[in-house]
Simulated scan of single mutants.
Amino acid sequence: MKKVLSIALIGFSMWASAQISLAGKANLIFPTGSPSWSNIKGTVNDAINGTGKNNVGFNVGLSLKVGLPTSLFVMPEIYYTHFKNEFTTENTTFDVKSNRIDVPVLLGYNLLGNMLGVFVGPVGSFNLSKDNTYNDFKENAKNDFTVGYQFGAQLEI
């Protein structure tokens, strides 16, 4: 009986370790007004060409990937996110800064085994500090909680 229980526990632990992975992650952020292809392309081009100031942010954190049946997976994450952007349009200067904790819970699908996958899901954000200045108007959104969405693709090397 002890042998059967030991074999069962070892087998379960091997199966469980193959289905769950923990990873450190880091991403670059290109802030954009809306998620249209032209806005995303324009924001990336502005960052490359140097239009605006400090218009690229970053986030770092942890990601847990839990495999589900039929190539699906759930991926809860936690990040520290920072970005700063300053730009001028028609005599109005915008200075946007943000430090926050993001907690996305993503549902994904593996396209090529574990090598390539796509994901989508909600993300809750808690602002640690956020000071936006629009000419003489200043917004302080510290301690605000917001909900948004996230989508993307991943490539595991």
Rank of each mutant, 00 (worst) to 15 (best):
Y149N: 00
I29L: 12
L107C: 06
A8G: 13
A8R: 10
F30K: 07
F137G: 01
G124E: 05
M115K: 15
G121M: 07
V147E: 01
I10D: 09
E86P: 10
D131T: 15
F87G: 02
N27T: 15
S98K: 07
K65A: 11
S17G: 02
V105E: 07
V123L: 03
F145K: 00
V4D: 13
K130T: 11
P35F: 01
G57T: 07
D131P: 00
I10Y: 13
G61R: 09
V123M: 13
V103C: 08
T81R: 09
G57I: 04
L155M: 10
G108E: 07
I78W: 01
D95A: 14
K2L: 13
I40D: 01
S21W: 00
F137K: 07
N55K: 04
N54F: 06
S17Q: 04
I10L: 15
I40G: 07
K130P: 02
L116E: 07
G117A: 13
Y149F: 11
N91L: 15
S71F: 10
S38K: 05
E77D: 00
N127A: 14
D136R: 09
T89Y: 15
I78S: 01
K142E: 10
W37G: 01
F83S: 01
F151L: 05
M14W: 04
V118N: 03
V123Q: 14
F30Q: 05
T81A: 09
P69R: 03
F87P: 02
S129G: 12
G52E: 02
A16G: 00
N59S: 14
Q150L: 11
P31L: 05
A18C: 00
V103R: 09
T51H: 11
K130Y: 04
V66G: 08
F87V: 05
F87D: 03
V120N: 09
F58L: 11
N49R: 05
S17V: 01
P35Q: 00
Q150P: 03
S98D: 12
S36R: 13
N135R: 11
G113Y: 12
V74G: 01
D136T: 14
W15K: 02
F145L: 08
F83E: 00
L111N: 11
E90S: 15
K97G: 08
G121R: 08
I101M: 04
L28E: 04
F73K: 01
F58C: 05
V118K: 07
P31Y: 06
N132Y: 08
S34H: 08
F94S: 13
N143C: 03
F58D: 04
V56D: 04
P76V: 02
L112A: 12
T93Q: 09
S63C: 03
S129C: 10
N114D: 15
P122S: 12
A153K: 00
G57E: 05
L155E: 02
S63F: 06
N91R: 14
D144A: 07
W37A: 12
F119K: 06
A47Y: 04
L155P: 04
L22T: 08
N45Y: 12
F87T: 04
V118Q: 03
F58Q: 10
L64G: 12
N39Y: 14
E86H: 08
K53I: 01
K97V: 05
P76L: 03
E77Q: 03
V96T: 15
G57Y: 02
L116S: 03
K25C: 06
T51C: 04
N55G: 10
P122W: 05
E77T: 00
D136E: 13
Y149H: 00
